[in-house]
C-alpha cells in the first residue's frame, strides 16, 4: 500500500498543501485537461498536471483524488492554495516533467489502469484479469 507521503519522499517533492498526506494512493492519472480528469480519473488517484488554476482543486475534490502533483516547476496560484487548504487536497510541486514523474511513480508501483475493473480495456491492452489482486497464500505441506 503506497502512501502519498512515501511518494513525497521518494520523488523529493515540495509540499505546498500538506493536509491528508498519509492517505493511500490507488493509482495515477496524468492530464492537463480538466474535462478528461472529470471523466476518467478514479477515486484516490494521484493527479499529475501542469495546470495551476484554482479549478484543479474543485476537480480533485469532486473526484475524491488523493492529491495533485504540479510539474515543470510551476507554482499554484494563491487562490488555488487557499482552496486546497479548505478542501484538504494535498498539493505537491516538482521541477520534473510529467513524463519523468509518471515514470518514477510507475517504478514505485503506481499504475494508470485500475486493474481488474474494466475487463474490456484490460483485455485490449493485455493485462491479466487477476493482476493486482492479492494472491492466495499457498499452504506449505509439512
Amino acid at each position: 500500500m503506497l502512501k502519498l507521503n512515501r511518494i513525497v519522499k521518494e520523488l523529493n517533492l515540495r509540499v505546498i498543501v500538506a493536509h491528508n498526506i498519509d492517505k493511500v494512493v490507488s493509482g495515477g492519472y496524468a492530464s492537463d485537461l480538466l474535462s478528461d480528469v472529470i471523466a476518467h480519473s478514479q477515486k484516490d488517484n494521484i493527479w499529475i498536471t501542469l495546470q495551476t488554476h484554482q479549478n484543479i482543486v474543485a476537480v480533485a475534490s469532486l473526484k475524491e483524488l488523493v492529491g495533485i502533483i504540479i510539474v515543470n516547476g510551476r507554482m499554484p496560484e494563491d487562490e488555488t492554495i487557499k482552496k486546497a487548504k479548505q478542501e484538504k487536497i494535498p498539493i505537491l510541486v516538482t521541477e520534473l516533467s510529467t513524463f519523468e514523474v509518471v515514470g518514477r511513480l510507475y517504478g514505485l508501483g503506481v499504475r494508470g489502469i485500475k486493474q481488474g475493473v474494466s475487463p474490456c480495456l484490460s483485455r485490449r491492452i493485455g493485462i491479466p484479469q487477476n493482476a493486482g489482486q492479492p494472491q492466495k497464500k499457498r499452504r506449505v505441506k509439512s
Binding site: L96, V102, G103, I113
Partner: peptide, 24 residues
C-alpha cells in the same frame, strides 16, 4: 494511438528505457 491512458503509457515507456527531460 493507444488505448492506454496517459499515466500507463508514460510509465511503460519510461520503464522500457525512454528518456525524459530531466533538467529545466
Amino acid at each position: 494511438t493507444t488505448q492506454m491512458p496517459m499515466f500507463e503509457s508514460c510509465g511503460r515507456l519510461y520503464k522500457n528505457g525512454l528518456a525524459s527531460r530531466l533538467v529545466k
